[in-house]
Design a protein around this nucleic acid. Structure first.
Lengths: 367, 367
DNA sequence: TTGTACGCGTTATCAT
DNA sequence: ATGATAACGCGTACAA
């Protein structure tokens, strides 16, 4: 038997009231109740009021499970992210949840922990939860994408964000990382830097590949030949930034600037440079990527790229809702690229007179 | 009609296979399928294998909606947090999701945006989604708690974390904030500070009330009379930290230390102190609360309290699962207090020889 | 405008 | 060990 107890109600707990209960009380059919509640057109205004009033009185809550089962679609959106840490993903999730709930959807969230296997499991779970659509940012270890075929074959709306499957066959929202790499590097060039190093991330991830490409574009445009020795590949954490800077500074011709594809590695690099007695930005200018909270606190404040985290979440939801609302009708996949914003701070400003006084506000965020 | 199409299958999309499909194919009843899949005892091992094999072949996914509807409980846990930003809540959510998925639950997340009305709406939504239990951290504007009575009356497991309803009638997991305030203040006293100011948050929130109480306890213990002029109340953001420090420094007898109940306000305070030419910690020692990422980057690195975010998420899930597994049996509410960890850094170390070199690692976190 | 009846996919109960 | 059947709560085609 189901756990609900009608004949033997317990004193402490109350069972939720169903449409059938309302129907019985009003002496009408469930259909009428259903219509009144869902604002159907063929329902008398008088009856509608009676139903709504009773529903309010009993604090009727529709059972979304039953509704979803009947309709074959829930009001849930599934998210798969590598993790919920740092600045980026929480902010995107924030944006997603805000936009989704505004549209009447709720959000069920899964972490892949950068593990394809878990990403696959999460996908299965979301499928079996009958979500209305799925938003995914790929795990670092996702190199083959067959598991997403199952989603496609179910006809389930799917939108990638940030870490995406490349190509025009999928819906995707990204920051224009190439543009980000490009403007960062252009900025360093404008400061008079000529030997610009690059701390690059794993190249199978679109974000790092594109940031590097933007860097290359800017160098090419400036007529500066590429020196592969100036590009250092790593997983982009702080330790690796330190190691990278150590290597770069031991080159016969050390760089006069570093464009790091991530703030943490930029921070490590900056710390190592200063530890070796160099002045940032005079001896070596540094820029990061992501606009982590600490970039404003760093000494000197670190130039970085804002990733429009919340906008990305909003845009992803908007796109997903479009696909959902198309309801199976042929939908041409779309790729959205958000414009990055270069935030110039002291770590890359060669002209002292242009620099800002230290101690600016981190943000207006109230924790 | 439901959107599933069996008689007119579309070429591009495949409908999920149900237990009925498997039953038909094997020429057995759905009951048998159900038993095989749910590892029931009365099922022949041979039959069980046949079913499992077929299920694998067709990649059968149970419809969790249907299962939940039948059983009256889903495998979903609802979370309500004020927002998903900063360091604390994302980390707790991270801990919650990790622990929950390990136990076979998924997590649906809602933000109240510090708004009671939205908190109430979220609660209704989670109820109507038939979640198995709810985890809540109260909004800042939640002063009356009647909406949680509905949850209790439904017999739905409920656990508060961090921002809780006080008392022994509820399940709750918190950091021992009072202890945090106490050890912070004791530490400042041990550094020789005697006029210790306190940047306090809204006192209707247990966390801020308790941090303040710990501060008072430590002062009383040290025989230092309370000076209300040294306690500054605000919403604890950076601007307010700046304003607070400005006020404090204009006192006839300015403080020689500040215990801030939040890192952001501590940061503002520190910046303002330095702007006015004071040296931290020599002229004024400062400690914060939360161990935000930037505390290690700040100049000087900021002493703070680690809030055990992930442990809190884990503990909340553990407690919630206990209540869920009690399955309606009388469960005596429990309150869990996590031990805070004081992280002593240069912003409060009066003896120069004890200080650490600058440029320590932020964390081993790889973004 | 309102009611009847069935089905969504799963599981619990009862019978065999 | 297996099967038949009803029920969870809601939505809709169809009849009235």
């Amino acid at each position: 038997m189901a756990p609900r107890k009608k004949q033997a109600p317990e004193p402490t707990t109350t069972s939720p009231v169903s449409m059938a209960d309302l129907a019985r009380e009003l002496g009408v059919s469930m259909t009428t109740i259903s219509r009144a509640l869902s604002d159907h057109h063929s329902i008398g205004p008088a009856m509608k009021q009676r139903v709504l009033k009773l529903a309010k009185k009993y604090n009727y809550q529709p059972n979304r499970l039953a509704s979803a089962l009947r309709k074959g679609k829930s009001q849930l959106i599934g998210i798969i992210v590598p993790y919920i840490e740092g600045r980026f993903f929480p902010s995107v999730v924030h944006g997603i949840e805000t936009a989704a709930s505004k549209a009447g959807y709720n959000v069920i969230i899964c972490q892949s922990n950068e593990d394809v296997a878990q990403e696959r499991r999460n996908l299965e779970i979301l499928l079996s939860a009958q979500v209305a659509g799925i938003l995914v940012s790929l795990s670092r270890t996702t190199l083959d994408f067959r598991h997403f075929e199952k989603v496609r074959s179910r006809g389930l709306p799917l939108v990638f964000f940030d870490r995406i499957v490349e190509g025009d066959k999928v819906n995707a929202v990204v920051l224009d990382d190439q543009e980000g790499g490009y403007v960062s590097t252009r900025h360093l060039l404008s400061q008079g830097c000529r030997r610009i190093a690059h701390l690059a991330g794993p190249q199978h991830l679109n974000i790092y590949k594109n940031r590097r490409q933007g860097y290359l574009d800017a160098l090419a445009e400036a007529g500066i030949p590429l020196d592969e020795a100036l590009i250092h590949y790593s997983d982009m954490n702080q330790e690796q930034g330190i190691a990278a800077m150590r290597e770069l500074l031991s080159l016969p011709e050390p760089p006069d600037a570093v464009f790091a594809a991530g703030d943490y590695s930029a921070l490590g690099a900056m710390q190592e440079a200063r530890r070796q007695g160099l002045t940032v930005p005079d001896d070596i200018a540094i820029t990061g990527f992501s606009n982590e909270a600490f970039t404003l606190i760093a000494e000197p404040a670190m130039t970085s790229i804002d990733q429009r985290c919340e906008e990305m979440g909003q845009a992803a939801v908007r796109l997903l809702l479009e696909v959902i609302d198309a309801d199976g009708a042929p939908f041409t996949p779309r790729q959205v690229a958000l414009r990055p914003e270069l935030l110039v701070r002291n770590s890359s400003l060669r002209q002292p007179e242009a620099r800002l006084p230290a101690g600016k506000l981190v943000s207006s965020f109230t924790p």
